[in-house]
Amino acid sequence: MPISIDQFEGDLGDFLEIQEGTQPHRILQFLAEHSDEAFTQTEIHEGTGIKRGSVGAVLSRLEDRSLVRHHGRYWAIAEDDRLASYAAQQRASSASTADDYYNEE
């Protein structure tokens, strides 16, 4: 997938290169929707449906890119400016899909 010249000439470290639908995207989306909580790998597996054995490897790669953080057994989305707007978008998106427009009294 090509990138713009601005991205090419800029700092690619600031460019969030996570393709929608991939395991890293699903984990980041889950953690962003729950940015005020931290989860074990098993809880991330249960929340995303990603195979338990794959969760650890994906989290390690995301940690290498400073996109997630962990303490002991628990993982959370990183405190990073690149992720602040992403987390806000995910929370807004999940809130809008939870609205019940058809069950009005």
Rank of each mutant, 00 (worst) to 15 (best):
S35R: 15
R65K: 15
F15C: 14
Q7D: 12
H71I: 06
R52F: 11
E20V: 07
I77S: 05
Q23W: 02
L83N: 08
G53A: 12
G21H: 07
Q7S: 13
D100M: 12
A88R: 15
L62F: 11
R52N: 09
Q7A: 12
R65E: 09
G10F: 08
A78G: 01
R26S: 08
F30D: 01
R73C: 00
T40C: 09
E37L: 12
Q29C: 10
H71M: 09
S96E: 07
E105N: 10
S93K: 10
V68A: 00
A98P: 00
Q29E: 08
G13N: 15
D99Q: 15
H25E: 06
E63R: 15
L59C: 14
E104P: 02
G13H: 04
D80F: 00
G13M: 02
A76G: 07
A92N: 08
R73Q: 11
T48S: 06
G47L: 11
T48L: 01
Y86H: 11
E79P: 02
T40P: 03
I5Y: 05
D64H: 02
A38H: 10
A76E: 05
A88S: 12
D11L: 14
A78W: 06
D6E: 15
G72Y: 01
E63W: 12
G21N: 11
F15V: 15
D81G: 07
D80Q: 09
L59E: 02
S54C: 08
S94R: 12
S60F: 09
H71A: 14
F8P: 00
D99P: 00
I77Q: 04
H71K: 14
L12K: 15
E105S: 07
S94Y: 06
E79C: 05
Y86W: 13
A87V: 05
Q19N: 11
S93E: 03
Q41H: 04
L28W: 01
D80S: 09
S94L: 03
D6S: 15
A95M: 06
D36E: 14
S94N: 06
I27G: 03
Q41K: 14
Y102H: 14
A88H: 10
D99H: 09
E17G: 03
L83Q: 06
H25S: 13
S4L: 12
R82K: 13
V58A: 13
R65L: 09
W75Q: 03
R26T: 12
L67F: 10
E37K: 14
G10W: 01
S4W: 01
W75S: 05
T22M: 07
I44C: 02
L16E: 01
S60C: 00
D11G: 13
P2F: 09
K51S: 07
S85N: 10
E37Y: 10
N103P: 00
Q90W: 11
L67Y: 04
D81M: 04
Q7M: 08
E9I: 13
S94D: 06
L16W: 02
A76P: 00
A76L: 03
A92Q: 08
R91A: 00
H34A: 04
I3C: 11
S54N: 13
R61Y: 04
L12Y: 05
I77P: 02
V58Q: 08
A98V: 00
W75F: 14
T22E: 01
D80G: 01
D99E: 10
I18K: 05
S94M: 10
Q90C: 14
L31D: 02
T97P: 00
T40W: 05
